[in-house]
Amino acid sequence: MDNTTWVANHTGRSDFDLMGLFSHSKHPTLLCVVIFVVFLMALSGNTILILLIHCDVHLHNPMYFFITQLSLMDVMYISVTVPKMLMDQVMGVKQISAPECGMQMFLCLTVGGSEVFLLAAMAYDRYVAICHPLRYPILMNHRVCLLLVSSSWLLGSVDGFMLTPITMTFPFCRSREIHHFFCEVPAVMKLSCSDTSLYETLMYLCCVFMLLIPVTVISSSYSFILFTIHRMNSAEGRKKAFATCSSHMMVVILFYGAAIYTYMLPTSYHNPEKDMIVSVFYTILTPVLNPLIYSLRNKDVTRALKKMLNVVSVLQESIK
């Protein structure tokens, strides 16, 4: 068989095989149950947080508006990858069609890119709240908040629309086995038989641009915030400001660290096992941790949760 026929036969397939997490596990059933529990925790935690913020008027301010958007992104992120992974494991299926793979890739890029910019908007919001408290209602009015959130979603979708079609139009003439649990760009690119070095360079530059602007905004915002906190006379004020900002910084470090590893480190630092572990961190664990970080460390949210639980208990008593 000549090379042309071999390429034609392999590119004729329209589906891929997702090797996933379970093929590397000694106890796939236990791992499946753990991931399912984590998935339910992420869905319930983020949904409850969104409902709390929506129902409690004391939480109707810019910071919590951004948190609802972050929770919505986390729900979308984990829902794009985990349900299919679990269903495939239960049904004993590994295939994913090219259109499904492209859609999964597009949604992950869009939501991930949007979250990168949203975290920058949240840092700017904290900067205005702490450094310019008297001007906060004007500088962060509802229109500005909507503009920041809309811009985050728009820039994230640009990332998805730009990278997905290029990645999926490369010829795939090697093995159709994607050593990952979802269609992530670097994992899919490894299957291409054409020279992808130029595209990888352009993708690297795109990621630098997408991360450079938010990182600049975040680092500048928190530099001014730390300086302002240091100058505060009130110990209680310093404690409250630091607690709010530390929660956001934890989320930023978790998410940006994983993104930098996946899209900006040279290929020599990567292998399928490490890539999957990092991807598990930001697609499965981060959506679980975010509502815990923002709720357990936030007195307003815990107060709203207690109020909601009291209402539920009163309703149950009245029904009885």
Rank of each mutant, 00 (worst) to 15 (best):
V116K: 00
K307Y: 07
V128W: 01
T302L: 15
H230I: 07
L59F: 09
H179C: 15
T228G: 01
P83F: 07
L148N: 05
L226G: 09
F117K: 06
R238T: 12
P28A: 11
S295D: 03
Y127F: 14
I213V: 15
P266M: 01
N233E: 15
L212Q: 00
I225Q: 05
I178N: 06
S23R: 07
L146Q: 11
D300R: 13
G92A: 10
L51G: 03
V93D: 13
C173T: 08
V38T: 04
F170L: 14
D195E: 10
S157A: 09
V314C: 06
T68V: 15
L59W: 04
P266I: 11
L118P: 06
V312S: 13
Y127P: 11
G20Q: 08
S97F: 01
K190W: 01
E200G: 11
M168F: 15
L51K: 11
S192L: 02
D195Y: 09
Y77D: 06
S221Q: 01
L254F: 13
I50N: 02
V288R: 00
S223C: 14
T11V: 15
M103E: 06
K306D: 09
D2T: 11
I35P: 00
D88G: 11
L212G: 07
P266Q: 01
H10Q: 10
L139W: 04
H270S: 14
L107N: 05
C108N: 13
V7G: 03
S313L: 12
L109F: 11
R297N: 09
R13V: 08
F255L: 12
T302W: 05
D15V: 12
V278S: 00
M162D: 04
S151M: 14
G160F: 09
L109T: 05
V149L: 09
S23G: 04
V149I: 15
S114D: 00
L30H: 04
V128D: 00
P186H: 01
F209H: 03
A129S: 13
T167E: 02
I67S: 12
A304V: 11
V128L: 03
S279D: 02
T47D: 01
C131L: 03
M1F: 12
T11C: 05
D125N: 12
Y64C: 14
L292E: 02
V217I: 15
N233L: 10
L52K: 02
Y294W: 08
N46T: 14
V34W: 08
A304S: 15
K320F: 09
F106Y: 14
I319W: 12
F36E: 00
C145K: 11
S221H: 02
C206G: 10
V116Q: 01
V34D: 01
M91L: 13
N271L: 06
H58P: 03
V217T: 15
E100L: 05
L305G: 14
P28W: 08
I277Y: 05
N141W: 05
T5C: 01
L289T: 02
I53E: 00
L139N: 08
E100F: 05
A42M: 02
M73Q: 04
D159Y: 06
S175W: 02
F161R: 02
F39D: 03
S114W: 00
N298A: 02
L118T: 04
I260H: 03
R238C: 12
S192M: 03
T262M: 11
T228F: 07
T167Y: 07
V301M: 09
H60P: 14
I35L: 07
